[in-house]
């Protein structure tokens, strides 16, 4: 096996690892018990909602509404964790801390980097998803809404 080959393999692996930090599709797919369609629908919904929520964060930050800001950031953090968007989750974690400590200068910077992370997320999101095989196909199911 040539050195060149193994170098390219290494960079592929690290690219994959980076992408997984942005969005870990395998983790999300497992959480959704291998339901591929559901995962795509949830990711669409997350993308649609995120921008509106980000605007909300900016507005509330301008008016220094600490309680509402905290609630919104906390909720977004929970969503990001659930869909395995780890970098966005980490950024929201810093943001939440900054809100609690009322460090407004760093808050503006964090909001900008959150937007940046979201753009990165969208990029990864748009790369064609690898056909992950569910670990247990029998567990696939669609939520039975009441």
């Amino acid at each position: 096996m040539s050195t060149q080959h193994s170098n390219s393999q290494t960079s592929e692996i690290s690219a994959c690892a980076d992408e997984r930090e942005v969005l870990d599709r395998d983790e999300l797919l497992q959480r959704c018990l291998g339901n591929f369609e559901f995962v795509e629908r949830i990711l669409d919904r997350f993308s649609e909602d995120f921008e509106t929520k980000l605007d909300g964060i900016r507005e509330l930050s301008k008016s220094r509404e600490v309680y509402q800001l905290h609630q919104l950031a906390h909720q977004m953090k929970g969503t990001a964790a659930n869909i395995a968007a780890h970098r966005i989750q980490a950024c929201l974690c810093d943001l939440e801390r900054s809100i609690d400590e009322e460090t407004w200068d760093s808050l503006d910077l964090l909001i900008d980097s959150l937007e940046c992370e979201f753009r990165g997320f969208q990029k990864v999101r748009q790369t064609p998803a690898q056909a992950n095989t569910p670990s247990d196909p029998s567990k696939q199911g669609v939520a039975d809404h009441e």
Partner: peptide, 11 residues
């Protein structure tokens, strides 16, 4: 969204 993921799993 978190509610929906949980609901899907429970169902």
């Amino acid at each position: 969204i978190s509610g929906e993921i949980l609901e899907q799993c429970l169902s």
